[in-house]
Nucleic acid binder design. Structure first.
Lengths: 248, 248
DNA sequence: CGACTCGTTGACTCTCTTCAAGGATAGTGG
DNA sequence: CCACTATCCTTGAAGAGAGTCAACGAGTCG
C-alpha cells in the first residue's frame, strides 16, 4: 500500500518513549515503525516480552488466537499439517515479522521456534481496541498482510510449477534477500532451518533438497562450510535459476 | 478478524442510498456490507461499473495498480507467469470478491474474465482517501485480505503435499463451498474455468486433471452432464479425499 | 564413549508428465 | 441449416523427475 510512506520514515523523538518498546532493537523493521513516540508508549502498555527455547511452539493451528506477536530475535517456521502427518511449511519469520493475524478466532497455522526466540506479545482483544485508535498501525498491518499475501502467491508459483533445482535456488535467493533487508550479510547466509523444514517449505523431500544442494555446490554456485550456513558464490547464477516473473 | 461482526450484520436503511450501489445485487457478499447507507452513498460517488467479455484481461501483473475492483457478475482467474510460459493460477474470483490489493503500486498478478464479467471499479487513490474516513471499510478489507491469505496457505498445502486425486477433490469441494456461500446450488456445480485453468491452479497438467476426473466419475463421486458443469454425487466421499487439517 | 539426530548418497520405484492421437463441442461462414 | 474448423477434452503409451527405501558418515548430547 502506497499511502503514508512518510509516516514510516519519520522517526519519533525518543523523549516520550517509555517501557520496553523504547529499547526495541527491531522497531524500524516492524509494524511499530509507523508509530510516534506517544503512540508507541500506548502500545507498550499492552505488550509483554516472551522468550522461548528452540523447537518450542509459539502458536498452534486451530487453537484460540488470543495473542499476536512480533519477532524480536530468532526465527520461526509456520506450517500446516494433514492428518496423516504430511507437513507444509508456509513461511519463515525473522526479526521484525508479525505473527498471528487470524480469521476465525483461531490460528490458521502453527508456528515453532527454530532457534532461541524472543517475541513481544500483544493480547489480541486489547490490540484490536487500540487499532481503532491508531489508524496508521491498522493501515500498516493491512500493508503487511498484503505483502505476505504477495509472498504466498510467489510460493504458489514455486510449489505448482517450478523444478526442484528452481525451488532450492529460489529459497536461497529469498533467504539472502531477507537477510539484506535485516542488514545482515547475504553471503555467509544463516540457514537456521533443517533440511526437513526446507523440504516441507519447498514441497520436496529432504533427500531431494540435499541432492539439489550438492548439485548447486558442484556447479560452484554455493559452498557449505558449517552446517546451518551457506556461502553464496554466484548470486546472479542462482537468480538465473529462479525466473522471477514474466512481467519484467 | 472478529471485532465488529455486528456492523456486518446491520443492514442499512435504504432511504438514503443513491446511485448504482443502491441497486447492487451482491452488496451483502462484498466488502460494502459493512457500510451504512450514508457511507455507501459516499463510496458510490467514486465507483464506475465496467463490463468485460469473456477472456478479457482485467488487471495485468506488473502494470500500475490504478484501480481496485469488486466482482458483481461473472468470474475471474488470477495468475502469474514465468518467462517460459509456465502459469500458476493463484485463485478464482466470484461475485462479491475483491480484486486488486496491491503492494508496490503495481499489480502482483494478472486477472482474466472467465465469462462475461461485470465489475465495479474504484480508483485507487480516491479509495485510499476514503478509507481513512471509513474505518469499518478498512477493517473489513483487512479481514478480507487475511481471509485470502488463509486460503493461500491451504493452497500451498495442496500444491506442496497433496496427490493429484486429493487436489482435484479439494478443488471441487472448494468450488461447491463457495457456491453455497453465494447461495448457489452445490451440486449441479458451475465450473466456468477450462481444464487448463484447473490444471494451472492445481499444479497439474490438463491430462492429469482429465484422467483424475474420470477416476472420480468411475468411483461414482461425481457425474458430468454438460461441459462446465459437474454433478457432485457424494460430497462426503469427496471430502474424505481432501483431508482438511489435522487440527480437527 | 555410545546413542541419537541430521545430512548425504545410492539404487530402485512410482506418480505424474510428455508426446501423440482421437473424439466431442462450439463457433463460423457458406 | 449444415459443413468446416479450431479448440477443448479425453485417452493411451512411453518417459522422466522426484519419491521411497536403505545405508552410511558426521556432528551432538547425555
Amino acid at each position: 500500500m502506497a499511502i503514508l510512506p512518510a509516516a514510516a520514515a519519520r522517526p519519533a523523538p525518543p523523549s516520550k518513549m517509555v517501557g520496553v518498546c523504547a529499547a526495541c532493537a527491531i522497531r524500524e523493521l516492524s509494524v511499530c515503525s509507523v508509530l510516534s513516540a506517544t503512540e508507541l508508549s500506548r502500545l507498550c502498555t499492552i505488550v509483554a516480552t516472551v522468550n522461548l527455547d528452540a523447537g518450542r511452539t509459539v502458536i498452534n493451528e486451530g487453537e484460540p488466537a488470543d495473542d499476536l506477536f512480533n519477532v524480536i530475535r530468532g526465527s520461526v517456521k509456520l506450517y500446516k499439517l494433514l492428518s496423516d502427518g504430511r507437513r507444509q511449511v508456509t513461511g519463515f519469520l525473522f526479526p521484525g515479522d508479525f505473527l498471528g493475524i487470524a480469521l476465525n478466532d483461531t490460528y490458521a497455522y502453527s508456528g515453532d521456534a527454530l532457534e532461541p526466540l524472543q517475541l513481544c506479545r500483544f493480547p489480541r482483544k486489547k490490540l484490536e481496541i487500540l487499532l481503532a485508535e491508531l489508524p496508521r498501525l491498522e493501515w500498516k498491518l493491512l500493508g503487511t498482510t498484503a505483502h505476505e499475501h504477495a509472498a504466498a502467491q510467489d510460493q504458489m508459483m514455486l510449489l505448482g510449477r517450478k523444478t526442484a533445482r528452481e525451488r532450492v535456488a529460489s529459497f536461497l535467493v529469498l533467504l539472502s534477500e531477507r537477510a539484506v533487508k535485516r542488514r545482515r550479510p547475504a553471503s555467509p547466509l544463516d540457514v537456521p532451518m533443517s533440511r526437513t523444514d526446507i523440504a516441507d517449505f519447498l514441497g520436496l523431500t529432504t533427500e531431494t533438497v540435499s541432492r539439489t544442494l550438492t548439485q548447486l555446490r558442484q556447479a560452484r554456485l554455493i559452498a557449505t562450510s558449517e552446517r546451518k550456513r551457506i556461502n553464496i558464490l554466484n548470486q546472479n547464477g542462482l537468480k538465473a535459476l529462479v525466473d522471477a516473473a514474466a512481467g519484467a
